[in-house]
């Protein structure tokens, strides 16, 4: 038994020695970060952290042209702290904004790269409040493209990263038409009817979203609101 453990430890030492060698490559030494900004208002464009807009980037100097991806936080910002200093072709794709072009960017040290985009929809005058046993959202929809608005929704989740993909309760409405920017929409969530997901006395995050009818589009949002039920 003793013998075995000795062998094992020798093996372990050998392995770790070998490991050191392999790991002699330089670590990622740069950071890339930035925010999706509305080209018109300069406000951050709200996103989804899962199944939301994606940033594809291809590192230059390799034949394989492998696409890597970054996700975006709900507030429209993104950050990659483990990236090699190099030249990259970076493209935001499958987003909640008018498609943009790839851009070649040199990443070195802390590199900021904001994306000025045209969000498909701006959710305006958003208000979410608890009224009696309901959570009521009112808002207007300003679409920036001629496509139909597919649906609007009010989403709830215990986490601040609430959105259509990340919700435990929702109230949504199919629109499938062009919208009037002056119309006030109203969506409600009944709290008792969702008692297994919305417990009275607990805090939840609520967020208004709207989806344009365009290929691979993602939801546009107003900022999430925290309510105690």
């Amino acid at each position: 038994m003793k013998k075995i453990s000795i062998y094992l430890s020798v093996l372990a030492v050998m392995l770790s020695a070998a490991g050191c060698k392999i790991d002699n490559y330089p670590a990622p030494d740069a950071q890339l970060f930035g925010t999706f900004l509305d080209a018109e208002t300069n406000e951050p464009v709200e996103q989804d952290i899962i199944r939301g807009s994606t940033i594809e980037f291809i590192e230059h100097g390799y034949a394989s042209q492998t696409k890597q991806v970054m996700i975006v936080k709900n507030d429209g910002s993104y950050r990659n702290n483990l990236i090699f200093a190099n030249k990259y072709t970076i493209t935001p794709v499958r987003g909640n904004f008018v498609p943009t072009e790839p851009q070649d960017v040199t990443v070195a040290g802390a590199t900021q790269l904001d994306f000025k985009v045209q969000p498909y929809i701006r959710v305006k005058d958003a208000k979410i409040e608890k009224v009696g046993s309901k959570v009521v959202a009112t808002f207007k929809i300003q679409q920036t493209v001629i496509n139909n608005v597919k649906k609007i929704g009010l989403y709830a989740h215990p986490e601040p990263s609430v959105g259509e993909p990340m919700r435990t309760v929702l109230s949504d409405m199919e629109i499938n038409a062009a919208t009037d920017p002056n119309k006030v929409y109203k969506l409600e969530i009944d709290i008792p009817a969702n008692s297994n997901n919305l417990k009275s006395g607990s805090q939840y995050f609520f967020r208004i979203g709207a989806l344009i009818d365009a290929p691979e589009s993602k939801f546009n949002y107003a900022k999430a609101v925290r309510l105690t039920l």
């Binding site: 080209a39 008018v98 498609p99 045209q118 498909y120 493209v145 496509n147 009818d213 290929p215």
Partner: peptide
């Protein structure tokens, strides 16, 4: 038309 040009036009115009 709408699904093709809806995002195509603003994309072009922005460029």
């Amino acid at each position: 038309y709408t699904s093709v040009a809806g995002t195509h036009l603003p994309g072009d115009i922005a460029w």
